[in-house]
Design a protein around this nucleic acid. Structure first.
Lengths: 143, 143
DNA sequence: CTTGCTACTTAGAACCATTCCAATTTGTTC
DNA sequence: GAACAAATTGGAATGGTTCTAAGTAGCAAG
């Protein structure tokens, strides 16, 4: 069983084809931007970065493509409070730490053992498809 | 040590006074509405319920009062994806289960022991002030 | 090729939860 | 009961996101 958790840029065309979708320059560049700098950019930030390569891309297309990538399970959308949605290429199950000072987001690795324990708190009849864990606080720049 | 986790309606005036704020009819009714039906209403839903008692209240006031109650630690604001903020009088540390079918929210009790284990995954230098855990999936109506 | 089909992109309008603003109203204090 | 501060109000503004209608691009027969 292949448990790929962060697809390579090449995987994009394949994944899209699997869903009957086309590989387009816009989709490729957007996916590449998200893989390159894994700082959980917002749609606006993606838009700004992508324009370096595709100066005439529209914001609507950025939203459309991001949605497509999420559908194809190549990218994950994460929300903090009501702030703009952020996009994350890390497909491992993981938590997020939201640094209040800098606004930056850090991925926090979660042991599988802990994930099981967390899911175990659900009463009978609850069938969870996804789990989101978010810390908020202060993070010191790691030494 | 008093670990009150769901204040009574009477606690409102006291808490407000502690923060140098006034107890107003609007704040009282809104707090009462949230205590009465603990189904995690949105601001709009609170607005609708409060108007039974205060027909001339404005939506802006509902937002203002909810914000005040959150500041005074009488109510918690919870967000799911980018859906409207919901309000919750349960001040225990707890997780939420978001039922995709009905859209309803269920509180999930978390053992203190598990909370500790979760916080323990944070690397040195990370100081979490709050933790949010959200499940999404299907919940059967409990027997 | 070229006509037709469908997917994709685009600009701008629309949406909607929330916040802001400026003007009252209310309550409290001297 | 004048004066000051706090709270409420309606409506306008904000901002991330989605919608819409029109245009573009790529492929598939004929």
């Amino acid at each position: 069983m292949s448990t790929m958790t962060t697809a390579s840029p090449d995987a994009l065309a394949q994944r899209l084809a699997d869903s009957g979708l086309r590989s387009t320059p816009q989709r490729e560049v957007i996916y590449d931007v998200i893989l390159r700098k894994r700082d959980h950019p917002t749609a606006d930030e993606v838009y700004a970065r992508v324009r370096a390569d595709l100066p005439s891309i529209s914001l609507a297309t950025v939203y459309n493509c991001l949605e497509t990538l999420v559908q194809c399970d190549l990218v994950r959308a994460v929300n903090f409070e009501r702030a703009p949605t952020r996009y994350c290429p890390n497909l491992h199950p993981h938590a997020h730490f939201h640094d209040e000072q800098s606004g930056s987001i850090h991925d926090i690795q979660l042991p599988a053992e802990l994930l099981e324990k967390i899911s175990a708190v659900l009463p009978a009849g609850y069938d969870a498809k996804s789990l989101q864990i978010t810390f908020r606080g202060k993070a010191q720049p790691a030494a």
